[in-house]
Nucleic acid binder design. Sequence first.
DNA 1: TGCAACATTAGAGTATAGTCTATACTTGCA
DNA 2: TGCAAGTATAGACTATACTCTAATGTTGCA
Lengths: 120, 120
Amino acid sequence: MLINELSKRTGISAHTIRFYEKSGLLKGKLDENVKTNKYSHYDEESVERLELVRDAKSIGFTIREISQLMDAWYNNKMTVDEKLKVLDDKLVSITDKIKQLKEMKKMIDQFKKTVKDDAC
Amino acid sequence: MLINELSKRTGISAHTIRFYEKSGLLKGKLDENVKTNKYSHYDEESVERLELVRDAKSIGFTIREISQLMDAWYNNKMTVDEKLKVLDDKLVSITDKIKQLKEMKKMIDQFKKTVKDDAC
DNA sequence: TGCAACATTAGAGTATAGTCTATACTTGCA
DNA sequence: TGCAAGTATAGACTATACTCTAATGTTGCA
């Protein structure tokens, strides 16, 4: 599929997809049979990758971090142990973040109590 | 205390504190008794505020969002109900984020299994 | 009194993550 | 064949959140 279709399927603008491509998060391929243009073609993996980007971004991963996750997932140059290490590192940082968020919830609950008490 | 002491106590650079001050996250006061300079003086609330900024930032709140929290906490111009609304909104967004992070953990666990299976 | 250390301000520079514009080329359909 | 719609590329622009520099002024101590 061409970039416009990829954009429609993922809801991510063509501009942004090109930006992600420059950042190494996905890669289109030229169709060797077509000699008249240099249009990039994308496959289902590109759709998957963009969906992963959106999920990872929404919870605060940077493009660089997402790129590492992508490498662990798709790059065959990494050994199994290297891939597992990248994934374990992400698990640790996610677990940390969840812990911090829970602390923040407690703080806000405490705030709420104080606000209510002030009202009385 | 002057900015250097505030910086030392919080571990946040004087530059960054001034940036936060411009962003409305805290405010120093001039000492009326001192006529020879315009040095800003900070109190314990400033220390508290900077600690809250650091906590909130570490879990992904923007300065604008932190500013809203600060208002709910310190601003007496807001009604109790308005304050509670800001705090409840933050609780919802934190809960959402925790949910997403847990989903991401599941995904990564799944990734790990597949990586291990590929190795066999 | 000299001078190092500290304070202030304006403004420039950096990094991240887009977002948009301009220009030019290609495709497909009426 | 004309032309709207799609594609590619470079580069400018935006927002967020700092980070640093330069110039200037103030303080406190030897």
